[in-house]
């Protein structure tokens, strides 16, 4: 497994580790039957915290993992980003957008079909998680199988 695949694998675990505790907290608060305006505020805070914490975990985790891999393999990690890396990144980001857009429009469809508005936020939260996983799985797939 390449170094980039290992880091992508770590990113999936990191993303899930950040997502589920935050989601559980907001779920408990919204299940308590608070008004919709307060729920929207909680969900907004959830998405901002999710973004901030995900970035922080990814940056710190990637630096630590790179250092560990460099020590273990005695080979420099990520000295350059070349044309193949950029192609794989473009493919992975495209998959991220597909999955997130699907979740977004699916959420809108549920609201149109008469489901409660709060369900939209649950769908958006899980589509963000699924899109992130699709992003990193795309990296692993292309780095392991070729592009």
């Amino acid at each position: 497994m390449t170094h980039r695949s290992k880091i992508a694998l770590f990113s999936i675990v990191g993303q899930a580790a950040v997502f589920f505790p935050l989601y559980r907290t907001v779920r408990q608060a919204t299940d308590a039957g608070i008004p919709l305006e307060a729920q929207i505020s909680l969900w907004a805070a959830f998405f901002l915290k999710l973004l901030g914490l995900s970035v922080a975990v990814m940056v710190v985790g990637t630096i630590l993992l790179q250092a560990l891999l460099q020590i273990r393999s005695k080979e420099s990690v990520f000295t350059v980003t070349d044309e193949r890396d950029r192609l794989i990144e473009a493919q992975a980001v495209r998959n991220f957008c597909y999955v997130f857009c699907f979740g977004f429009f699916f959420g809108m469809l549920l609201v149109v079909l008469g489901q409660p508005a709060s369900l939209l936020f649950h769908v958006l939260a899980f589509s963000y998680l699924a899109a992130g996983i699709a992003l990193y799985l795309s990296y692993i797939f292309h780095y392991e199988r070729g592009y």
Binding site: E75, D82, R84, D85
Partner: peptide, 15 residues
């Protein structure tokens, strides 16, 4: 000016 992984992928006809 590329990574070793890219040379490996080209050599093995994966890229």
């Amino acid at each position: 000016g590329v990574t070793r992984q890219t040379i490996l992928a080209i050599e093995s006809d994966k890229y």
